[in-house]
Amino acid sequence: MAADGRFDKLAPVRSVIATGLGPVYWLGNAPYRFSDWFSGLFVSRDDLQQENEELKTRLLILERRALKYAALASENNELRRLLNSSEVLDDRVIVGEVVAVSPDPFSHEVVINKGSNDGVTTGQAVLDAEGLLGQVIQTSQFTSRVLLVSDSSHAVPVEVVRNGLRSILLGNGETDELELVHVPDTADIREGDMLVSSGLGGRFPRGYPVAEVSSISKEPGEPFVDIVAVPKARLNQSRLVLVVFQQKDEPAEAPLVPLGEVEEQN
């Protein structure tokens, strides 16, 4: 034993014995393994149904989380687009959210969650991340109604970015097209031209993207051409919007003159 403990002389012998006893160990554990396997064959139907319901519940929870994450990702992307849009504007803006849509099919209006408490007033321009969405037509303490550019009563003075040609862009009750009116057949305008707000009339600040010319047609004998433009804003999709506060030129205050100097001058 001493020699084995010091020089490990019997290690090969112990290895052979352990190898030979392997089947004995396996046979000794076989009844327990067989018992577990056999009992697993007779799982009750109630247990299977319960496990199935638990798995369905977990799946629903995971699907809800996935939808929530997708919605958050979409909202983050929209916020990034709004941030990029606000950075290129010279005017002050606040971010609002569309909370209601007019059920009247002939009235293109939405309600946003910004009102007079936020400084919103009638006539302010409202944008989304792509372009001009509409203008505020009514305010309350906490909300405002916005008339979309696609409403048949809405008109925007615009100009062509390429050459400065000015005209009026009208809504026609369709969310995917607008009409550019009173354009002579000799005017230099092409499909693909970008239309931006001209600032005339003072209602909309100048330079906001409004629409892109999609088609031009001319009726024989008519002095004006029929022009259809596609709005840049996602009129029936955008949820987050920018309410624009125009920078107003304030008159410089006259310097105060001490009363004594006035009396001396007199």
Rank of each mutant, 00 (worst) to 15 (best):
I94L: 04
A187C: 10
V160D: 08
P103L: 03
E179F: 12
G134Y: 10
S144T: 00
L133R: 03
P184L: 10
E97N: 12
L148V: 10
S140W: 09
G115V: 02
G134D: 09
E159P: 01
I112K: 02
Q141K: 10
E179G: 05
S153L: 14
A187Y: 08
V161W: 01
I137E: 09
G119N: 07
V161H: 03
L147G: 07
D104S: 14
E159A: 11
F142I: 12
P103E: 03
P105H: 09
G171D: 08
V99F: 05
T121E: 13
N113V: 09
L170M: 10
L148W: 06
D104T: 09
S152I: 13
L127K: 07
V95A: 05
Q141E: 12
D151K: 08
V183A: 04
T139I: 10
V160K: 05
D128E: 06
L165M: 12
P105N: 12
L165G: 12
S140A: 13
V149D: 03
I168D: 12
S116G: 09
L148H: 06
V120Y: 06
H154W: 07
I94W: 01
L148F: 06
T121Q: 11
G173C: 11
T139M: 07
E130A: 14
S153R: 15
D176Y: 07
R145Q: 11
I137G: 02
L180Q: 04
P157W: 01
R145T: 13
H108Q: 11
P157C: 02
E109Q: 14
G134N: 11
E97G: 12
G115Y: 01
V160F: 06
N163L: 02
N163H: 05
I137A: 02
I94M: 02
N163C: 04
G115W: 01
Q124T: 05
V101E: 13
T175W: 00
R145N: 15
S144L: 00
H108Y: 00
L147C: 13
G119D: 07
L170A: 09
S153W: 04
E159M: 14
N117D: 15
G173M: 08
L147P: 07
V183D: 01
F142C: 07
H182R: 11
Q141G: 14
Q135H: 12
V160G: 06
T121P: 01
V99I: 15
Q124H: 08
A129C: 06
R166L: 14
V160Q: 05
N117R: 13
A187V: 11
F142P: 04
T186V: 10
F142L: 11
V99A: 05
L148Q: 13
S102V: 00
